[in-house]
Design a protein around this nucleic acid. Structure first.
Length: 569
RNA sequence: CGGGAUGUAGCGCAGUCUGGUAGCGUACCUGCUUCGGGAGUAGGGGGUCGGAGGUUCAAAUCCUCUCAUCCCGACCA
């Protein structure tokens, strides 16, 4: 392509509304423009990058037997009512009506549609398994879209769905998917981790997230550097406590006055005890009412873990108002002793003796509290959020590190959640009818490109990984109106086209500085700079975007070296 | 949805407090010079000051409503 013919509106200054570097650079590089909040137009340079990501995805999906389809973006409400998500999905689901006043939504995901297709067409175990995928525009009406294309409302996503006769076969495909995802993100040049994840509203039993490590990420990823275990922090496992011997003479339960001492710090300071001797009692609310969660004073309760332990539909911290409505609860003085709510306790509590809790009356705490003797726990479990430095639950000596991550991919085993509700069934060898077991697997295409920029940029602009670069090579004439220079540029350009290397020839009449700044900004991995002085000495300049290193090479011999130079990048 | 902020030329901003002919930088067009890291110079085009209503002799500026965008939080994944 010739630069003068391409629509690449680059900008010197960052737009005022951009916060993260990838957003700023994508706008400055002329890749995207905002149309409305969270809705972006993709310009030619941006589209080239997205197509590169898509192509890598297609190759890896096809490799494991995925078949590409293209499903409607507008979906009828009936389907969502069948899966019970019409009511459950909430305001994120963009609902629309047609001229007959029939209800539809703009698809935020496609489990319903794909399940509908498969249940109509697939009847026998002989037709299973099947893996279908698409690359589609989705819409999720996020409360607060941000970070440009990284978290828009409208976005491009690859979503794949697999259907199986049993769980074991699903797991097989799941692990193939995990491998394919690793391949994809590796080919995209990303530094990522496969982490254990919660399945959220998509539902299902088993799930991993692919997170690109970057400070601008919205997820906290906990991982162990010795054994490689990694998990979304919201469900990263904590190591169970070592068995502790109870003291020979446990203290008696004793009530102490603690006026105005509500927080763990205040109580610990007042009683001159470490925070770990205090037990925090957190009141949460789910569809069945209030429950109490216990964690050590120096720990934080993790509602996601507690929700999973209880197995309830939803669970949120109860507000002060809900707490004060319940007789016997006093904010800041809540404790498990004599509490008429189900009590769930973190496993650390099991190893604790002679601790302090609220006394369920204003301005008082108990000391010398013992589990079992003074109160009953409905269930113990791993209920706390792990922190940097906590011991890894999967190896002996490892400790948790925590970094921010951008979720670029997510894979789930859905089980029969959708197939049973929507009657996607097949007949097995015995002629018995069963619900198909499903998996679902998503990749944010635009987000992957944005994440690549978050990880690969410098103060001059984007530094594209070779496989995502909109062009692999940019040819920059110092002066394209010079016949010798033009001739050399055209020769190189034509030759690169012949051997299948995508290159961009900056034929604009601008000064060299302008062209170099733009080349740096848009991040083409290899720059070839051709000027009359060097050329008359039989040389041209080759410059690596990433390292900013340049060297003179003999022309025209250098042309045939270019594929090799690119390979080395 | 709660808290905060901002809408003035394509982009980045000043002007608003204290009402009085709409400005700067950049980008764009033309001429001349320049030409290996965002040139210099002279000239030029481009604005319903987000929208509606109000106060006033007079509103970008004051008042009311409204729309949009962004930030923090909650939410989502």
């Amino acid at each position: 392509m010739h630069f003068s013919k391409l629509f690449i509106p680059t900008l010197k200054e960052s737009p005022a509304d951009a916060e993260v570097i990838s957003h700023k650079l994508m706008v400055r590089a002329g890749m995207i423009r905002q149309l409305a909040s969270g809705i972006y137009s993709i310009l030619p340079l941006g589209l080239r990058v997205l197509r590169k990501v898509e192509q890598i995805i297609r190759e890896e999906m096809n490799q494991i037997g995925g078949q590409e389809v293209f499903l409607p973006s507008i979906q009828p409400a009936e389907l969502w009512m069948e899966s019970k998500r019409w009511d459950f999905y909430g305001k994120e689901l963009l609902r629309i009506k047609d001229r007959h006043n029939r209800e539809f939504c703009y698809g935020p995901t496609h489990e319903e549609v794909i399940t509908d297709i498969v249940r109509r067409e697939i009847k026998s175990y002989r037709q299973l398994p099947v893996i279908l995928y698409q690359i589609q525009t989705k819409f999720r009406d996020e409360v607060r879209p941000r970070f440009g294309i990284m978290r828009g409302r409208e976005f491009m996503m690859k979503d794949a769905y697999s259907f199986h006769a049993d769980e074991e076969d699903t797991r097989h495909t799941y692990s193939q998917m995990a491998k394919a995802y690793s391949n994809i993100f590796k080919r995209c040049g990303l530094d990522f981790k496969q982490v254990q994840a919660d399945s959220g509203t998509i539902g299902g039993s088993f799930s991993h997230e692919f997170a690109v490590l970057a400070d601008s990420g919205e997820d906290d990823i906990g991982f162990c550097e010795s054994c490689g275990y990694a998990s979304n922090l919201e469900l990263a496992g904590s190591k169970p406590p070592a068995a502790s011997t109870p003291p020979a003479a446990p203290q008696d339960l004793k009530e102490v006055e603690t006026p105005g001492k509500k927080s763990v710090e205040e109580v610990a300071g007042f009683l001159n005890l470490p925070a770990r001797q205090i037990v925090k009692t957190i009141i949460l609310e789910n569809e069945n009412g209030l429950v109490a969660g216990l964690v050590r004073g120096d720990h934080e309760i993790n509602p996601v873990k507690l929700k999973n332990l209880i197995g309830c539909e939803w669970l949120l911290p109860a507000g002060e108002e809900a707490i004060s409505r319940h007789p016997g609860l006093h904010c800041g003085y809540v404790g498990p002793v004599g509490l008429d709510l189900p009590v769930y306790a973190d496993h650390e509590i099991f190893a604790l003796h002679d601790f302090v809790t609220g006394a369920n009356k204003p301005s008082a705490h108990f000391t010398g509290v013992q589990v079992e003797r003074d109160f009953k726990v409905k269930q113990f479990g791993d209920l706390r959020t792990v922190k940097v430095g906590d011991p890894c639950p999967h190896c002996e000596e490892g400790k948790y590190q925590v970094k921010r991550g951008i979720e670029v991919g997510h894979i789930f085993i859905l089980g029969t959640k959708y197939s049973s509700l929507m009657k996607a069934v097949y007949l097995d060898q015995q002629g018995k009818e069963s619900a198909m077991v499903m998996g679902c697997y998503g990749i944010g295409v635009g987000r992957t490109a944005a994440a690549a920029i978050e990880q690969n940029h410098d103060d001059r602009g984007i530094v594209w990984p070779l496989n995502l670069a909109p062009f692999q090579v940019i040819i920059i004439p110092v002066n394209y109106s010079d016949d010798e220079v033009k001739n050399a540029c055209d020769t190189i350009y034509d030759r690169l086209q012949e051997i299948g290397i995508d290159s961009l020839l900056d034929d604009r009449a601008d000064r060299l500085g302008v062209k170099l700044k733009d080349a740096d900004l848009i991040g083409i991995p290899l720059q070839i700079i051709i000027g009359p002085k060097n050329l008359s000495a039989g040389q041209i300049e080759i410059k690596i975007r990433k390292t900013n290193e340049s060297e003179l090479r003999p022309y025209p011999q250098v042309i045939e070296d270019i594929p090799g130079i690119l390979k080395g990048l």
